[in-house]
């Protein structure tokens, strides 16, 4: 049984079909990449599987149970947590308190939640900034808080929406290291990313979305050599990204 499985998931906005009959599955322990040009429907797809949007059609199962119509907080309790592309740290809370909000999911007690938060903060390398307020952090710091908040909910599956965007190459390297540790801790991940080297290196398997449809699926080397993908997306973009990755 797959950890998460989506079948025929469709969502329309007015006349536009943002996500069209997408089939998607994630196995325990995998890192699955989700790529596609801007406006391909990646974020909408994340919103659908994390419960922020309800699909018009289709079925989404997590851990063997349907999660259609469940609230995001409920889906999070079941073990699937997401981060946001536009990061959302709680601005007036310290890093520790930010992460504690997530940790309270499985630790009702304040001291236990704090302990869990410290553990996660160390894991993502935010230790020295634990007492800072959310709004005082740099972009890299915010991205890590975003990750830490999600990790603190002790997810089985984490959906990461562009956690590398806006980072410098050295910060990207740091984040890749963190994701390695997260994987070692046994968390399955789906990552949406624009920085191609990252996604090619990290992912076990990749899905390509184009105009809301999943046009390809496979191992990174298969995806790179897939004619459809190259035509639709990678042809221009991969070259551009490889050349100017630091600018993105």
């Amino acid at each position: 049984m797959s950890l998460m499985e989506a079948k025929g998931v469709t969502r329309r906005f007015g006349g536009l079909t943002a996500v069209n009959a997408v089939d998607f599955r994630v196995e325990q322990g995998e890192i699955v990449g989700l790529i596609g040009p801007n406006g391909a429907g990646k974020t909408t797809f994340f919103n659908l599987i994390s419960g922020f949007l309800r699909p018009d059609e289709g079925e989404i199962r997590f851990d063997g149970q349907s999660i259609i119509g469940h609230k995001p907080s409920d889906i999070c309790k079941r073990g699937m947590t997401r981060t946001f592309q536009i990061v959302k740290p709680f601005p007036e809370m310290t890093v520790t308190d930010n992460v504690m909000v997530g940790a309270f999911n499985h630790h009702r007690d304040r001291a236990a939640a704090r302990a869990k938060a410290s553990e996660v903060i160390e894991l993502v390398g935010l230790g020295p900034q634990a007492a800072k307020l959310g709004r005082e952090l740099t972009v890299a710091g915010r991205k890590r808080v975003e990750l830490a908040k999600a990790l603190a909910t002790e997810p089985k599956l984490m959906l990461l929406d562009e956690v590398m965007a806006g980072l410098t190459p050295s910060e990207v390297a740091g984040m890749i290291e963190v994701l390695g540790r997260v994987r070692a801790a046994g968390v399955t991940m789906v990552i949406v990313e624009h920085v191609m080297q990252v996604i090619m290196n990290l992912s076990d398997r990749i899905y390509v979305l184009h105009h809301g449809e999943a046009i390809a699926e496979g191992a990174p080397d298969q995806i790179v050599s897939d004619a459809k993908v190259t035509k639709a997306y990678l042809g221009e973009s991969f070259v551009a990204e490889a050349g100017g990755g630091a600018a993105s």
């Binding site: 994390s50 922020f52 609230k71 995001p72 907080s73 999070c76 309790k77 947590t81 997401r82 981060t83 946001f84 959302k88 740290p89 709680f90 601005p91 007036e92 809370m93 909000v101 997530g102 309270f104 999911n105 959310g134 908040k149 999600a150 603190a152 909910t153």
Partner: peptide, 10 residues
Amino acid sequence: QDEDAAEAVG
């Protein structure tokens, strides 16, 4: 501070 962010972390 952020309702969506709160909902996302449970």
